[in-house]
Measured scan of single mutants.
Amino acid sequence: NITNLCPFDEVFNATRFASVYAWNRKRISNCVADYSVLYNFAPFFAFKCYGVSPTKLNDLCFTNVYADSFVIRGNEVSQIAPGQTGNIADYNYKLPDDFTGCVIAWNSNKLDSKVGGNYNYLYRLFRKSNLKPFERDISTEIYQAGNKPCNGVAGFNCYFPLRSYGFRPTYGVGHQPYRVVVLSFELLHAPATVCGPKKST
């Protein structure tokens, strides 16, 4: 009989979020998941679920829940969905086509923008091939755009693969920082350890 609540607040209220190319993952297990707390949290810009209804989450049990978190621009949030393409979905964070879970995003301009620009948040701009679902690539190898080998030196046709967002408070909404948490639900042939409040007695 599990009684402790799942530590969703640790994920959602973290002081610093990860850059999207180096997205953070927390495994959540052996706890009671009260999703209504999240669902009623006012400032969400997006709360979209795939393969599961957000209002039914509290009735369900899962083997594991993974909480992935990172920061992207407002106009990139739409790429955090199954079957998407674009710089983020291709080179930074890719969801599987059969994704079961929820994508939760909110504007973090007050936290993550600075006058003069916040350059701490990076994304991958160049990559030889697209990421596989949930693949994480933190390499900083110089990207070779031409035929000539770069030998690890940036220059003509040789690019550092990461780019900084440089968030400023005055940017338009599409270019403002958004914090994103992706909850993915794993249902294995194993005992369920993460259940909603109704199922955990």
Rank of each mutant, 00 (worst) to 15 (best):
P197D: 12
V65C: 10
G74R: 05
F41H: 15
L187I: 14
K132I: 10
Y119K: 08
R127L: 02
A22H: 11
E10K: 12
V180L: 06
K26P: 00
R127M: 03
L125E: 01
V115L: 14
Y143R: 02
G116M: 08
P54F: 15
F70R: 02
Y93D: 00
N58R: 11
T3W: 09
V180E: 00
N157D: 04
Y143S: 02
T15M: 08
C150L: 00
F99A: 00
R16V: 13
Y39F: 15
T85R: 15
S19N: 09
T201W: 14
G117N: 03
S53D: 15
L95R: 03
N107A: 07
R124P: 00
K128G: 11
N120I: 08
F185E: 01
P177E: 00
D97R: 11
S164D: 04
F44T: 11
Y171D: 00
F41Q: 13
H175A: 03
V65D: 00
V180K: 01
V71I: 10
K132G: 10
K94V: 03
F134C: 06
P177W: 03
S78E: 11
G86A: 03
I2S: 14
C61F: 07
S200E: 13
V173S: 11
K94E: 00
L122K: 13
L38E: 02
P177N: 01
D34T: 08
Q84T: 13
A18K: 07
F99K: 02
L183G: 01
G83W: 07
F45D: 15
I142W: 05
S139T: 14
P191S: 13
A42S: 10
K114W: 10
R73C: 09
V65K: 04
V153P: 06
T85G: 11
D112G: 03
F12W: 05
N30C: 07
R73Y: 04
P54K: 15
G74T: 01
P177Q: 01
E10R: 09
P169N: 06
G152I: 05
V103S: 01
G83C: 09
P169Y: 05
A14V: 08
L60F: 11
S164Y: 05
C31Q: 07
N64E: 12
E135V: 07
N147G: 07
L111H: 12
G146R: 03
D59L: 07
S129Q: 14
Y171N: 00
L57C: 05
F45C: 09
P149V: 09
L131W: 01
A46P: 08
R127D: 00
N130C: 12
I80Q: 01
F44Y: 13
R73V: 03
G172S: 00
P133C: 05
S139P: 01
C6K: 05
F12N: 03
N87M: 15
Y121S: 06
S53W: 08
S184P: 01
Y21R: 02
N1Y: 09
P197E: 14
C61G: 08
F160A: 14
K94I: 01
N157I: 03
T55E: 15
A18Y: 08
A154N: 11
Y93P: 00
K56H: 14
G74C: 03
A145L: 04
V181I: 08
T100F: 14
D34Y: 05
F185N: 04
D112C: 01
F47A: 09
T15K: 13
F17E: 02
G172L: 00
F167E: 00
A14C: 07
S78H: 12
G174T: 08
D68L: 03
L188Y: 15
R127V: 01
C61T: 11
L38V: 12
K48Q: 10
C31M: 06
C61P: 10
N151I: 09
Y66E: 06
S29V: 10
R16W: 10
N13Q: 08
C195L: 12
T3A: 11
V173T: 14
L60S: 10
R25C: 00
V11G: 03
I28F: 15
N40A: 12
I80N: 01
S184K: 09
F99Q: 01
G155T: 06
R163S: 15
N64Y: 13
Y121G: 01
V32A: 08
I72N: 01
V181L: 06
V115W: 15
R124A: 01
S184W: 14
L187H: 13
W23H: 04
Y91M: 08
L183P: 00
K198G: 15
L125P: 15
T100C: 12
V20L: 02
A14R: 09
H189W: 09
A81R: 08
A81V: 07
A105S: 14
V182S: 03
F45R: 15
P197A: 15
I142A: 05
D97S: 13
T201D: 14
Y66M: 09
I2V: 14
N130G: 11
S108P: 00
L131I: 13
T170H: 04
S53I: 10
L131G: 01
L38S: 04
P54W: 14
Y39A: 14
F45P: 13
V20D: 00
Y165K: 01
D9G: 12
Q79K: 08
C102Q: 03
S29P: 09
S53Q: 14
T3K: 11
D68K: 04
D9H: 13
E10I: 08
D137A: 03
C195I: 12
F41G: 10
D98F: 08
K56P: 06
K110Y: 08
F12L: 10
F8I: 07
G196R: 12
G117K: 02
E135Y: 06
K94H: 10
H175R: 01
A89Y: 03
L111D: 13
E76Y: 03
T140G: 11
G146P: 00
T201A: 14
D97P: 12
H189T: 15
L57N: 06
Q84M: 13
V20C: 05
D90F: 09
F44M: 11
R163M: 15
Q144V: 09
F99R: 02
Y39H: 14
Y66R: 06
K114M: 11
I72F: 01
G172H: 00
F44L: 12
N24V: 08
C150D: 00
T55N: 14
F8E: 02
Y50Q: 03
A46V: 15
I28T: 04
K110E: 10
D34G: 06
I142Y: 07
Y171W: 05
L5I: 13
F45A: 15
L57V: 08
K128V: 09
T15I: 09
V11S: 04
N147M: 06
Y119R: 07
R168D: 00
I2P: 13
T63F: 07
P191M: 09
F167N: 00
K26G: 03
D68V: 03
G152E: 11
N87S: 14
N151M: 11
K198R: 13
R73M: 15
I104Q: 00
A14E: 08
I142F: 07
G86Q: 03
F17T: 04
Y171L: 00
D9A: 14
I104H: 05
R25A: 02
T55L: 13
S129D: 14
K148H: 13
F70H: 01
V65P: 02
Y143I: 04
L162H: 03
K48P: 00
C158M: 02
P177D: 00
F99V: 03
G196S: 12
N40M: 09
